[in-house]
């Protein structure tokens, strides 16, 4: 079987990463401004307005598009930064806005009806009725699906909705429904939905205690690693906790999503675009992962078997999972 290649939507946290993604064969680069208006509000990361302008020029000259994520929830009483992010992205010529907040979707539809609106995964739209609502109320043309659905559920969904779907293919993985998780805020006071950070570095501490390394988030111990064991970020949901007297990775092991093995199934399920996670990752990650997925997407489009991507070294805990795409994950 062959078909139209899946659109490859790739992350960039810096102009260097943007160029790396474009050069490695991205169809689209997605990015955010350097503030709380996007869900990767990490220190030293993201784009100024001039950097976006330059990035747009670089990408458009090479036939690549830019989507701008304004995908946190605007603060009550201070919508200014979020409105400006939408205005500036639209006026600079972004090819689409990636939005989650209903108020902001409404604003974007009224002020910039001509700019494409995509529904961020942070909106957690996991069923046809929800997706139809966003389409009818705010003219959303694509939805990034939450990482809670199986391939079968995605296929069923695609025949019931009037919009394109984009799914995550590689990288860090939320095990909770995105945009509906305040675990990190509970431990740190900094909220993924409001501040655009999860398990922020400012609240991460590592301590070496005897023969083990302890990682903490705020005042809570998230994990400890005896010598000789590989480890990951102290992301709260990838931590090791004790339940019923047993210590273990109750939510999820430190692992990365890799959906490359189910690309043909995702194509057959009617998915339009593949998203690579990792705006916080380095240029080397971007170049390598994007190039590998370029090959994979092209192979899948030709109907060829998807070659092994060899991206093991880029994954957290050096492990990969197909995540929610297969039902056994649940």
């Amino acid at each position: 079987m062959s078909g139209t290649p899946l659109e490859l939507v790739c992350p960039a946290g810096t102009p260097g990463a943007l160029r790396a993604a474009v050069d490695a064969g991205a169809d689209v680069v997605y990015l955010g401004f350097r503030d709380e208006t996007n869900a990767r509000n990490f220190p030293g990361l993201n784009f100024s307005r001039p950097e976006l302008r330059d990035g747009l020029a670089y990408a458009h000259e090479r036939g690549c598009r830019i989507y701008v994520a304004v995908n946190t929830f605007a603060a009550a009483g201070n919508p200014g930064p979020w409105h400006r992010a939408v205005d500036d992205a639209a006026e600079l010529g972004a090819d689409a806005l990636i939005l989650a907040d209903i108020g902001l979707l409404d604003y974007a539809r009224r002020r910039h009806p001509e700019t494409r609106r995509h529904l961020s995964v942070q909106a957690s739209a996991s069923n046809p009725t929800a997706i139809a609502y966003y389409h009818e109320a705010f003219g959303v043309q694509r939805v990034v699906l939450p990482r809670v659905l199986t391939v079968t559920e995605i296929a069923r969904l695609n025949v019931q909705i009037p919009v394109e779907t984009e799914v995550f293919a590689f990288g860090g993985m939320c095990v909770m429904a995105e945009g509906r998780c305040t675990l990190s805020a509970y431990a740190t006071g900094r909220s993924p939905n409001m501040n655009g950070v999860c398990s922020p570095a400012s609240h991460v501490r590592y301590e070496q205690l005897g023969g083990r390394m302890v990682s903490r988030l705020g005042r809570f111990t998230i994990n400890e690693f005896p010598d000789g064991e590989p480890a990951g970020y102290p992301t709260l949901c990838k931590g090791r906790f004790v339940a019923g007297g047993c210590a273990g990775y109750l939510f999820e092991e430190p692992t990365s999503l890799d959906a490359s093995t189910v690309l043909p199934e995702l194509m057959a399920a009617g998915v339009r675009a593949l998203k690579i996670e990792g705006r916080q990752r380095g240029r080397a990650y971007i170049a390598e992962v994007v190039a590998a997925f370029r090959r994979a997407v092209d192979a899948a489009a030709r109907g060829d078997p998807v070659p092994p991507l060899g991206l093991g070294g880029m994954t957290e805990g050096l492990r990969e999972t197909t995540g929610a795409y297969t039902k056994t994950w649940r």
């Binding site: 946290g13 810096t14 102009p15 260097g16 220190p43 030293g44 570095a201 380095g282």
Partner: peptide
């Protein structure tokens, strides 16, 4: 890496941003 992770991350991201 040891110490202030926010500082480390900022440095990493800054350095990575330039060519």
């Amino acid at each position: 890496v040891e110490g202030d992770m926010e500082a480390v991350l900022t440095l990493r991201n800054a350095v990575d941003s330039g060519g």
